[in-house]
Amino acid sequence: MKHKFLRAIGFSKYNKSDMIRPLLDQVRHSPTASVLVREGSEVFGHLSKSFGDRIGIRVYGEYEEGKEFRQEYFFPYADSNTISTTSPCVVERQSDRNAYGGLCEEPALGVSLIFYLSNGMEYARRLASSVESEKITGVSLTALSVAGKILLPMKKSHWQKASSQAAVKTRGRLIEAAKNGDEKAMESLAMEDMNLVQEISGRIGQEDLYSIVDTCFMPCGLECDQYAIIGEILEVETIRNTMTGENLYRMLLECNDVKMALLINQMDLLGEPEVGRRFKGDVWLQGRAEFASTEEE
């Protein structure tokens, strides 16, 4: 019944089932949005209720014949208006429930980008439709965190910033070429990794780790959609949960040339976020898919 990341959208005190149940009743009885899918005699989908600017709770379930909506599970959502990736995306249904996860091969990260599809029922509806397209043209990523800290920025000249961005793009092209069987690209990546290991080995004894590692994006824990990240803050704003009054930070981060939104409760963040500084923490990654129109097929 509980959800660890409820506090990320301002429900820090809702940590017991007897407190969460009335909250979910509000979502079911007065939703602000809904997406329903009909398959034969079955009708299932989600009911959503907003509790602030692009934040809220979604309750998934089905309508049994002659009965009310029967809840299966819920999760807190936070939407972003920034497209994070346009790489080809594969969507898979979870085996234990009617939910969906997405996977993108993002060259800039160098790892498979796995996330929870927050508008999974829209995808399911499009799959069942003969007039709507299920083709995904882009994904807006949002990371929810319940513990994080602010790191000081790394001092870089304009030349260093441009060189770093060019290196990321070059590495992305090499990774794509290596996936297609290019042996020279494989050799270049292997040599680059060896040089990087040697450079880090030479610097780690004299420098702090976070002066060497600018940004990072690594799988974390047992869940495939949870990551440990370090990202540069490009934008930061304070929003409020309209029900609890708790203040939240919403930041736009850049991790390895990929932009994503991040949401964290003010009381869970150590330090003062400012543009140019960095965020470090563990996150749960959601993604909202953008779909092609029928004409774009």
Rank of each mutant, 00 (worst) to 15 (best):
D268F: 04
K184G: 08
Y14G: 04
D193M: 12
E187M: 11
S17D: 15
A78P: 02
Y100N: 03
S50T: 14
K4R: 13
L141T: 00
C224P: 03
Y249Q: 00
D282E: 15
V275L: 04
Y73T: 06
R126E: 10
I264N: 00
T170M: 14
I230Y: 04
F115P: 01
I55Y: 03
I150Q: 04
G10I: 03
E183Q: 13
T244Y: 06
L234V: 04
V35E: 10
Y100C: 02
T294Y: 13
S30D: 11
K16T: 15
G245N: 07
G102C: 09
F44V: 04
A228T: 07
K135Q: 10
I9V: 15
G52K: 06
A261L: 01
R288M: 14
F74V: 01
T32L: 05
A185N: 06
L23Y: 06
R58H: 10
N241A: 09
H29Y: 11
E134G: 08
Q226Y: 05
R250S: 05
L127S: 03
E105Q: 08
V168M: 03
V91I: 15
K49E: 07
M260E: 00
E183I: 09
G138N: 05
H158A: 13
S157Y: 09
E223T: 11
T85G: 00
L269D: 00
M267Y: 10
R250E: 07
S145F: 04
K16W: 08
R7E: 13
D268V: 03
G287T: 05
E132Y: 12
G102F: 05
T170A: 13
M251Y: 03
Q26G: 12
G102M: 05
S80H: 02
Y227T: 01
L262N: 01
K155F: 12
G276V: 02
W284M: 09
R70G: 09
F51V: 09
I175A: 02
L6P: 02
M191I: 11
G61P: 05
I20E: 06
K156M: 15
G120M: 05
E62Q: 12
L151E: 06
V146S: 07
Y60N: 13
C255P: 01
E297G: 11
N256K: 06
M19I: 10
E207P: 03
K49R: 15
G10R: 02
V37N: 04
G271F: 00
E62A: 12
L141M: 05
S30E: 12
M260K: 00
A228Y: 10
L47P: 03
M260W: 00
E42C: 12
L270G: 06
L234D: 03
A190N: 09
E187R: 11
T86D: 03
A147W: 00
N81H: 12
Q26D: 15
P22L: 04
T137S: 13
S34W: 10
E62T: 09
S84Q: 01
N180I: 09
L234I: 05
F279R: 02
K67T: 08
W159S: 11
M121L: 14
C224Q: 08
D282W: 10
G110E: 05
L209T: 14
D18I: 11
D193C: 08
G120Y: 02
